[in-house]
Design a protein around this nucleic acid. Structure first.
Lengths: 355, 355
DNA sequence: TTGTAAGCGTTATCAT
DNA sequence: ATGATAACGCTTACAA
């Protein structure tokens, strides 16, 4: 396979009886090349199936039209939509998006970051990754524009568009308290290699503390065959979940919560998918969400409004993240000197039927 | 911003008082470098924040450890899981995965393909893209290993691991017929720039024809504010849906189907998400799936088993796609001479409660 | 409008 | 164990 050698620019040049540089120009500045010459070149390209070597091009140019997004390996909910639309917008501006999925594994982020930076993309876009000191070093050393999306941060050296997840969690928790719920359980991922998760947890505990409530931690590492019984007064419950079974995890977890001696009055879920699973459990088992128990999602993926009763969650205008994000990326990819900008997207509680 | 120049290998060499080539070796063959020298080099790297330029490296080496996946811009259901796990497996073999999302827009695939091929990845992985003659040309000219995932194909020049979507659709349709359903409606995306969708449609019509039924086409371009009323005897209904509103689309479409004069006895959905939306409509509106109407999903995303009643769909062992896919990619990325291989993953109908 | 010369940052090959 | 030299395929700067 692949016996024949790949054609190079020199081959096109010979074929079209011009200098290599003219072929180069035909690609980058066709308006500078005579129409007839252009045609010969195009013919030669078509005939040989020439594909310009971006690597060689990049070596000289030291920039590319690729925007690299660093994302969680499993892109659930809003992530997928944001990537889809962002990619569409940037494409229209001549940029090609590529994603580097990061495993939730020690060190993977740094490996990816280093590799990616070595390819000198036009810009690096981060999706709620937790940046260790080392990660930040890498980013700084890369000396290329970095935009953080989804979480609002004021860290210098990177721009950001997103909302304050701490505040958001706090708002949702306060909402539950306002509705009269007292014993509130927070369900989040126990493996929180993600700044967003950490911020949300902080927001929850803060709101509970402000309300004078005790915070009782519990981490359930394996919710399928767990030995430990949950204690009746737990407020916070971290579950270690495979992202690919979030719905089931929510379903099963709700089963346990419902059977606690001292069942929580409301549950706040850091993941909409887990929340939907839990909602479904309630529906099947005759527990009326919004009456018998309060259920609250987070970002507000599409499903939260398709399910009946509809899940209370955040009113999060993620379209603004896309629009502002695209604008920032474009500006920074084009003009390296653009300075940092931090845009906070406002969120509110979308009070629906489950609370 | 980014004032200072990025350090290069020569800078490290000077700093560590060695030749450039020794620095190079320190990265690629550290065992050939004296321990002490290695330390000086590492110190210099740490001090300057040097990041090897993959572009320059690639120019000389003409290969990289990057595997590029060409995926739909919005990765729903199983796609996401496959990418996540595949990326994990390949990472353990020293390969870094990056995704190129393709918009469902004329020509975008070819733009992406050409760009991507120019970066000379170790392998190209295709996710159910419809390859035009031009796309195939590009792939052939790229002269690099190509693996098609998710759809079984026997096209030469690329390996493949997947199932036969035509057969699958046919199986599901036959299942519905076997259950006694006669008036069966098939709901699929009207914009089918995707070989998978085309195959599924073919499988459905084939099964209906074999059973002696008439095929009645209808394409509904805009299901939110459509002028045309659907005809009562339609068998096939293509809906043009924004991928980000699949659940709602299913919900609303089911509302229409349910109110046809001559309501279909069963509905086969090419998208699980649309199917779940439809199921939810039935639940809310007192239509009993499996009794009043047959509902059938496709791939079998997690939700199909969390919803009650559980959705009938395919029993699709996608883990095998991941395992076999990773094996093939690895073999081809490592050894360019590996020959084509076509693996057909068997599927069966998972008869559940909605049929 | 087209061409010449030089060099982008790395590694393969061959020395020492 | 380390070094010198010559590429890799393209583009920038300048020249004609």
């Amino acid at each position: 396979m692949n016996e024949q050698k790949r054609p190079r620019m020199a081959d096109i040049a010979r074929e079209a009886r011009v200098n290599r540089i003219t072929v180069s120009r035909a690609f980058s500045n066709p308006e500078l090349v005579a129409k007839e010459t252009l045609e010969r070149i195009h013919a030669a390209v078509a005939k040989t199936g020439y594909i310009p070597n971006q690597i060689a091009r990049g070596l000289k140019a030291d920039h590319s039209n690729i925007v690299s997004l660093v994302t969680p390996a499993y892109m659930s909910g809003v992530y997928g939509q944001i990537v889809e639309q962002l990619s569409g917008l940037l494409y229209r501006s001549g940029l090609v998006v590529n994603l580097f999925p990061v495993q939730d594994v020690e060190g993977h982020l740094n490996v990816v970051l280093r590799e990616l930076a070595g390819w000198r993309p036009a810009a690096i876009v981060l999706f709620g990754a937790t940046l260790t000191e080392e990660s930040q070093q890498i980013i700084r050393n890369a000396r290329m524009p970095v935009v953080e999306l989804l979480n609002y941060s004021e860290s210098s050296g990177t721009s950001s568009v997103g909302y304050d997840h701490r505040l958001a969690a706090s708002l949702l928790t306060s909402h539950l308290l306002d509705q009269g719920y007292r014993k509130i359980c927070y369900i989040h991922s126990a493996r929180a290699a993600n700044i967003i998760n950490a911020d949300r947890l902080a927001g929850f505990t803060e709101a509970i503390r402000v309300a004078g409530g005790p915070i009782l931690l519990r981490s359930e590492r394996d919710q399928t065959n767990n030995q430990q019984q949950m204690a009746p007064r737990d407020h916070i419950c971290g579950i270690e979940l495979k992202s690919t079974t979030a719905f089931h995890a929510g379903f099963e977890l709700m089963g346990k919560l419902a059977n606690w001696e001292n069942r929580p009055e409301a549950v706040l879920f850091a993941s909409d998918m887990v929340a939907v699973g839990a909602l479904q459990y309630c529906l099947v088992n005759g527990i009326a969400p919004g009456k018998d128990i309060g259920l609250c999602g987070f970002d507000g993926i599409e499903l939260t409004s398709v399910m009946r009763p509809q899940l209370t969650c955040l009113d999060f205008p993620y379209q603004r993240v896309i629009a502002e994000g695209a604008r920032q990326i474009l500006a920074r990819a084009t003009d390296q000197s653009t300075s940092d900008e931090h845009i906070r997207i406002p969120v509110a509680v979308l009070h629906r039927e489950t609370t």
